[in-house]
């Protein structure tokens, strides 16, 4: 219940819109609460993952920077850094499009956390690395291709 309370407090302005969206059935309540639900992590395709996150309408944005190598020799460890300069960034998700389960991680940011995440991901094969940013109730996206020489997912 804390998460609910925090969300409501955090976005006093946005709360109305969220409530309307929930009422209209556009968003499931779980989605409105804390980032992507577990089902999105189990999705087997990018489309399903985005759907699970409620981010199918994400708009391309030049304000998202993805820092990742052009060529990753070892797919098991690919450093990825996402910076969002969109004001009011509340969440960043990282998707490796051709992984067995594309959604790698999502990060909900609050209480002064900046639009920046740095981590290391696994990549099964050469594909786009996509970042999905939520800011002010809207979703934005950007992608960068990473060539993988040796896959890092199973096999």
């Amino acid at each position: 219940m804390n998460a609910l309370r925090r969300n409501v407090l955090k976005s006093a302005a946005g709360a109305g819109t969220v409530a309307v969206a929930v009422a209209a059935g556009l968003l499931k309540p779980t989605m409105a609460l804390a980032g992507a639900p577990r089902t999105a992590f189990e999705a087997k395709s990018v489309g399903d993952a985005l759907k699970g996150m409620g981010a199918t309408a994400a708009a391309d944005s030049k304000d998202i920077t993805i820092k990742a190598p052009d060529i990753a020799e070892n797919g098991a460890v690919v450093p990825v850094e996402v910076t969002s300069s969109i004001a009011g960034t509340t969440a960043i998700a990282i998707i490796s499009e051709k992984n067995a389960t594309p959604l790698v991680a999502d990060f909900d940011l609050s209480n002064g956390a900046q639009g920046f995440i740095s981590t290391r991901i696994k990549m099964g094969q050469t594909s786009l690395v996509r970042a999905v940013v939520t800011a002010g109730g809207k979703t934005y996206t950007a992608a960068k291709e990473v060539k993988v020489t040796i896959g890092g997912c199973g096999g």
Partner: peptide, 18 residues
């Protein structure tokens, strides 16, 4: 400040910077 969900797609011995 941060609430993250992860899958097995994060590398072994995860590194996280924020």
């Amino acid at each position: 400040v941060l609430d993250a969900g992860m899958s097995g797609g994060i590398s072994k011995n995860p590194y996280l910077g924020f």
